[in-house]
Simulated scan of single mutants.
Amino acid sequence: MDKLMVAYVLSDSIGETGEEVAQAAVSQFNSGEYEIRRFPYITEESQIIEILEEAKQENCIILFTIVIESLRKFLINKSKEYGIQSIDILEPILNAIQKVVGFEPKREPGLIRKLDENYFRKVAAVEFAVKYDDGKDTRGIKKADIVLIGVSRTSKTPLSMYLAHKNVKVANIPLLPEVKPPKELYEIDPRKIMGLTANPIKLNEIRQERLKALGLGNTANYASMERILREIEYAEELMKDLGCEVIDVSNKAVEETAGVIQELMRINHMKD
C-alpha cells in the first residue's frame, strides 16, 4: 500500500498540539505511509464543510483541537454524516479536569500560546530589571515602564524584580547627594517615576544590619543618622522637583509597595 492514511488536523488556534499528537500516534504504525495536513484557525462552519469535502476522497481520519463548542459539535455531527472518523483530542482531558476542579473550561482558542507569550514577556522584564538595576545604564530610564528612585535600602532592587514577574519593565536609580541625577529623569513622563522614601530610624536600622552582614562596624558613615537625614532630604527635594509620586516604604512589604505602584500605573494608564 503506497499510502496508509491521511490525518487531517483541525484547530481553532494554530493546531500544533493536534499535529504533535497525530505524529506521535502514527509513528506507532510502521506499515505504509501517512501524511498529516494541518488546518489552523477554523472559525467558520463553511471551512469545516470544505475540508470534509476534500477528506471524503481520502483514506483518512480527523483529529481536532477545537474548543469553541458550536464548531466542535458541528464538526462531530458532520464527520458522522460524511462517514469520516473524527477524534476530539482535548475533550476527554477537559472533562477529567472539570471533574477535579469543579468548574467548566474557558473554551477560548489559543490560550496556550497566550501563556507562552506571557512567559517570554516575563523573562524579558526580568532581564531588563537586571540590566538596568542600580543605575548601571541610564539609557534604561527611557525604555522602562517604571523608574524607581530612592536612597540606598529603600527596596529598589527587590521591587524591580517583583514587578518584573508581573511583566513590568523597571529601571532603578540610586540617589546620592554627591551624584548628579541622570538627565533622562527630566526627559520622561513624571508619572513613570516612583520615588521611594523611608523613615530615617528604619533606614538606620536596616543599614546597620547591612553593615553587620558585610562584617563592617556600625560606625560607618553609611549608617549614621546625619548621613541618612541628608540623603533623605536631598532625595525628597529631587522627587518634588521631578513632580513624581512618592511612596513611603517604611512599613510596607515589597508586595504591598508593588501593589501601590501597579494601581498608580493603572490610574495613569501607563501600561495595558
Rank of each mutant, 00 (worst) to 15 (best):
D134I: 06
Y119F: 15
K114D: 14
Y82P: 13
G83D: 06
L159Y: 02
G135K: 10
L115K: 13
R121E: 15
A55T: 05
I89H: 05
E127C: 01
P105V: 02
E81D: 14
I62L: 07
C60F: 00
I68C: 03
A96G: 00
E117G: 12
N95S: 11
I76D: 13
N95A: 11
N77A: 05
K131D: 00
E108W: 01
G110S: 08
E108V: 14
D134P: 12
D133V: 12
S152K: 11
I51S: 06
L111W: 01
K106R: 13
H165E: 11
K114R: 15
K156I: 02
E53Y: 02
P105I: 03
K56V: 14
I89C: 03
L148N: 01
R121N: 15
I68R: 14
K80F: 12
G110E: 07
L111A: 04
L111G: 06
Y162H: 11
E108C: 05
S160D: 09
N118I: 11
N77W: 00
R113V: 12
R153T: 09
P105N: 03
I146F: 00
E58F: 01
F120N: 07
L90Y: 05
L52V: 04
V123A: 11
I146L: 00
L75I: 09
I76F: 04
S70A: 14
I51P: 09
R72H: 12
I112Q: 14
L115G: 03
R121S: 14
E50W: 02
G150I: 04
E127R: 12
V126C: 07
K106L: 15
I97L: 13
I112E: 10
S70W: 10
K106I: 12
I87V: 14
T65D: 04
L63A: 06
K56Y: 11
V123T: 10
P92W: 03
F74G: 12
K80W: 09
F64R: 04
D88L: 00
F64L: 08
Q85Y: 10
G110K: 09
A124N: 13
T65S: 08
N77M: 01
D145V: 02
S70E: 15
K142T: 11
K142M: 02
E69H: 09
I93L: 14
A96M: 10
S70M: 10
R113Y: 15
V170N: 04
K56T: 11
R139I: 06
P109E: 09
T154K: 01
V147C: 06
V168W: 00
I112M: 13
I97H: 01
K99W: 00
Y119K: 15
G83S: 06
N167R: 11
I97W: 01
F103R: 13
G140F: 03
L115N: 07
F74E: 09
K80Y: 12
A125G: 02
I84R: 05
S160M: 05
I76K: 13
A164T: 08
V130Q: 11
P105H: 04
I97S: 01
Y119L: 15
A144G: 09
I89E: 06
N95E: 15
K131A: 00
V101I: 14
Y82E: 05
I89D: 04
E127F: 03
K122D: 04
K114E: 15
L94C: 07
T154N: 03
G140H: 06
K73F: 08
I146N: 00
S86N: 02
K73I: 13
D145T: 00
C60K: 01
I61N: 04
K80G: 06
P109G: 10
E81Y: 02
L94I: 14
I76E: 14
S79L: 09
